[in-house]
Nucleic acid binder design. Sequence first.
DNA 1: GAGTGGTCTAGACCACCCC
DNA 2: GGGTGGTCTAGACCACTCG
Lengths: 240, 240
Amino acid sequence: MTETQAKYQEVAGCLRNEIRHGGYTVGQQLPLEKELCEMYGVSRTTVKRAVDVLVAEGFVVKRRGAGTFVKALDRGIVQHLNQEKQFGGFTEYYAGYDIGTKVLHYAVVHPTEEVARLLMIEPDDFVYDISRLRLVSGKPIVVEYTQMPLKRIPELPKDVLNHSIYRYLENELGLRIQSAHRRLRAVMPTGEEKELLGIEGRMPLLEVTQTAFLADGLPFEYSISRHRGDKMVYRVVSIR
Amino acid sequence: MTETQAKYQEVAGCLRNEIRHGGYTVGQQLPLEKELCEMYGVSRTTVKRAVDVLVAEGFVVKRRGAGTFVKALDRGIVQHLNQEKQFGGFTEYYAGYDIGTKVLHYAVVHPTEEVARLLMIEPDDFVYDISRLRLVSGKPIVVEYTQMPLKRIPELPKDVLNHSIYRYLENELGLRIQSAHRRLRAVMPTGEEKELLGIEGRMPLLEVTQTAFLADGLPFEYSISRHRGDKMVYRVVSIR
DNA sequence: GAGTGGTCTAGACCACCCC
DNA sequence: GGGTGGTCTAGACCACTCG
């Protein structure tokens, strides 16, 4: 079953493929918006939206008065752009690999004041309190500390923790994850984390603190992920 | 001189202020798009664009069939959203603080093969090779290693290095910075970096590797910034 | 079923780049 | 000055949510 797509998504997809597979090469000017309208049989508004998708993904730049140009990107990087939606967290990020999970801790507790504030709940509400070690090909990669309000996730079977919580929320509970606010820092592992992650000597961790939101605008997750510094690179394309 | 703004920017600004200063509170539904059209005297397309700005900034969520809602965000976080454009680099990030710069190294060299590839130049082209220590209130915060092709930045007076290179490029050379592709990692400092950054004991660094692009789509900078882990937090809002 | 935001159109005018 | 992308409009139809 192929999803029905909006026209602008289809046009964006075509252009993306052309760029990726060399139809339009690095530094080259794209056809004018007017020409793209004719080529794809759509209005100019639709073409503009399509091209804006590629701008956001980092493939092209638009210059008023001049045209639209493929960014001068290294071929290797072109392939990686737009690969990682950075949602679905760990499971999606490492899709295709041999993923393992070890549940370290699973309880229901009251949140700290700070977490209650960030999750927009009361300190005497309850949250799931979960710690998991995630592995790729049997090797530990990241420790995740997750808190989710029972208020918003009424049910969370223990078995789910061994797989993707996000997938469960979306597929089983029908909840739609809308956005995430993240903060990244470099930290040192605790003694326990060194052991869990199999770190000998000195290795820093990339810590990602995340508040994630459902489609209704309410936060449903506060989590801290601490990744082995040698295994995690976080990519961002930022447009002016 | 107030800049002339697009209507959708103005409307977005109004809504942003309302949210920040409590006119619309957390979790609340915004007026319908049709109502906003009347309130601001603009077309629906313009309202949609305005609201889309706020979605991208992380303030609100839109739900087809339901409405637009202010995200349930902690007040402290609401204030910080959309503060940091993350361009202009260090100088803009710490605007208002007492900033210092110590130039460690300034030369013209050939790039490595990798850097040549990323900057889309030839290995026998030349690049500025700059190392700087940046300080806030006299305290060292970050070491920056920067390479820029002479091809694209024909002139770079030594004096500029003591201030903001970006500001020089924009204001003096009239170059417009369009986007940046970044990779973030956690690393340990070298012995030299420990000394430069005044680190005693174990402290990790947040490394930001950046390729930055001008408006013409050509890369003009490859840089590696290594920030004291206790001073740098990188924020991202990511939308599905 | 009523009402929401999502997509799309055709056309207009404007700001900017470049020759 | 000719041509680019940027903004804006008015109107149409659609997909989805919710009572």
